[in-house]
Design a protein around this nucleic acid. Structure first.
Lengths: 197, 197
DNA sequence: TCCATTTGTCAACGATTGTTGACTTTTTAG
DNA sequence: CTAAAAAGTCAACAATCGTTGACAAATGGA
């Protein structure tokens, strides 16, 4: 009967609110301290609730993390992509995802834990294969779209690492314009450049 | 009196050997599973020794990690660097560091834990400031050497993440030549390109 | 050989972790 | 209003963690 509430979004029945509070606290703490660094007790404290409730609503820490680590990059539809500006398009969307007004901690959650948590790593590879790769495949020979998307991801994940997780001072100091002007051309060449593999 | 052994390297006195065994096991496990993922008991088991000995030789897990997380990139001397081939030089050295015959797990240790361990993050920023930045400063206007070195690091750390930690299949599949041919020019432009900041 | 130092073993400590079950309070429906 | 279901509280469990101290074995110099 709880299953119905998803199909009939009429009742935000009190439990849904605390459920959302837990998930929000979890996303925040997972993004900031990683899977191991954020304990269930920390999440519960941040949601002003008992640790047992976290397990009640989500069955385990793993499942809570799985629910928290949902990422939708909302990359442009394939038909709208211009082959000549794909680099700039990607880096602009990158900045929106990480710093835009509607930005969520989704990518930070994955990236923070991907180095020591196999589930997070697999989820990140999924994002690459199902969200980044198709976009690159729309502007390049699908035969080596994987390679090109891999190079694009290496630059974007590296930039995210340095700017948002590692917080390397000179990379933090970069303005949006600087980033677009320097990294954009790199992505353009990786995604749609004419050099042979 | 134990302090003397470092200045007088005469006696490989039995304890130095187990000390080295512990350190080697620690470097291996820290590189593979990160700071949290590798327990002192795991390290001890890998070194075929009692967990208490690990604490005896190194005073704590933190200190053991600090000893294990020593990185010397051995980048080319500043005088030998050619401004026109700095990109290729850097990417070639990168591949040697990670895959060469004399490659150690140093960078993997730092990168694996830098996202969730502040000490590792600080150590990685040190490597950037004291080893990468000077090299870039040798071929570019020292005024924005930090910015350029930051961009270089973003690409190199991202490549390392994708290829060695995350193991993104298309990035793992790249041959050395492909990497040099595609990433080299990027580094060249970041380190010594003529675009304005 | 004898003794002091080093090297190693063992068991246990306190803390933290994810997780569970019994219980109480609150909400909801008839 | 009343009874059932939901929501929340509390204490405790087993496991793992880093770390410690007491004790045994080995080593090496006199």
């Amino acid at each position: 009967m709880n299953f119905m509430t998803e199909n009939q979004p009429k009742k935000p029945s009190k439990s849904d609110r605390t459920r959302a509070q837990i998930l929000e606290a979890a996303r925040l703490l997972f993004a900031e301290h990683g899977y191991d660094g954020a304990s269930i007790r920390d999440v519960a404290a941040h949601a002003s609730i008992d640790p047992a409730m976290v397990i009640r609503y989500f069955r385990s820490k793993d499942e809570l993390f799985a629910r928290a680590a949902v990422v939708d990059l909302q990359l442009p539809a394939l038909r709208v992509i211009d082959r000549n500006t794909i680099g700039e398009t990607l880096i602009r969307r990158f900045l929106e995802i990480w710093e835009g007004p509607a930005s969520g901690p989704g990518m930070a959650i994955l990236l923070r834990s991907a180095t020591s948590n196999e589930f997070a790593a697999e989820k990140l590879r999924d994002v690459f294969a199902n969200q980044v790769r198709p976009v690159v495949a729309a502007v390049a020979d699908p035969a080596d779209a994987g390679r090109r998307a891999g190079l694009v991801s290496s630059q974007l994940l590296g930039l995210a690492m340095c700017r948002y997780l590692l917080r390397l001072p000179p990379v933090v100091a970069l303005s949006h314009d600087e980033i677009i002007r320097t990294v954009g051309p790199t992505l353009q060449r990786y995604a749609a450049g004419e050099d042979a593999p």
